[in-house]
């Protein structure tokens, strides 16, 4: 059974997500070496870091699709480290993978309806069409016939329907035209206003700085620094040394 952690446990229950000393493996290779960070409800937080630092792996570990993981991941106060990914999703966690995961054998409409509703309070289809008008015009097309930007909208849109309040977005702006990036940015801001909690992996930290509250820097499978968004200007030299080549 899923037991909520006692309320007096030093604020953990007030976190939408609390990751502590998370280790993760792909087969034999040890990728995550003790990732720790947490997110308050309604926050937008990014993971920044170089390629191969372990950002995507962290998201995969949180969503439960990484084969081998250890440590502690509390989703809304519930320990998920030993749960199967389908049970984690049922706690109200929505995952948008880097490759977007649009199904070629399903129409746009079927893709949109695929993830089951896990919590009440998800967006209605009408609200999703309002957010992403492009989708409404392409409902009958096969999912992968959409443009990259439309696929990204579909990948986000279908999660919004489920009522998940905690969203993991893996590089939602990757390879998209600037005008689409802006649209995704506006969407994330809007979701933030509506109380969604969002964990974002981003390479484009100018984009990240326009929407996020805080940034965690990931390196060698650990979180090595935390930067509040209003400290970003002041921390530029430090960030450059983390992310620069």
């Amino acid at each position: 059974m899923l037991k909520p952690v006692a309320k007096d446990d030093a604020g953990a229950a007030h976190r939408a997500l609390a990751v502590k000393d998370l280790h993760g493996w792909y087969g034999e290779s040890h990728i995550l070496h003790g990732v720790s960070f947490d997110i308050k409800p309604g926050e937008v937080v990014t993971l920044l870091g170089r390629n191969g630092a372990g950002k995507t792996t962290t998201l995969r570990a949180i969503s439960g699709i990484l084969g081998k993981r250890r440590g502690s991941i509390l989703v809304d106060g519930v320990e998920t480290i030993s749960l199967a990914s389908r049970h984690i999703a049922r706690l109200g966690l929505g995952y948008v993978p880097e490759e977007r995961g649009i199904f070629a054998g399903l129409s746009v409409y079927e893709n949109l309806l695929l993830p089951p509703v896990v919590k009440p309070g998800g967006l209605s289809l009408a609200a999703i069409y309002e957010l992403f008008p492009n989708l409404k015009e392409r409902l009958k097309s096969p999912g992968t016939k959409l443009s990259g930007g439309e696929q990204q909208m579909l990948a986000i849109g279908r999660i919004l329907r489920t009522g998940a309040k905690l969203m993991l977005l893996d590089e939602p702006t990757e390879g998209l035209a600037p005008v689409i990036v802006q649209q995704i940015g506006r969407t994330i801001t809007k979701l933030k206003e509506e109380g969604f909690t969002i964990l974002l992996v981003e390479q484009n930290f100018h984009f990240a700085s326009t929407i996020a509250n805080r940034h965690f820097v990931v390196e060698h499978g650990r979180v090595i620094d935390e930067i509040a968004n209003d400290q970003l200007e002041a921390s530029m030299p430090k960030l450059k040394s983390y992310l620069g080549v």
Binding site: I65, A89, R90, G101, F103, G105, L106, L114, P116, T162
Partner: peptide, 14 residues
């Protein structure tokens, strides 16, 4: 059909 393409992701949806 979705699980035939990518069972891991379908499971991650719950």
């Amino acid at each position: 059909r979705a699980a035939t393409e990518n069972a891991t992701l379908v499971e991650a949806f719950g």
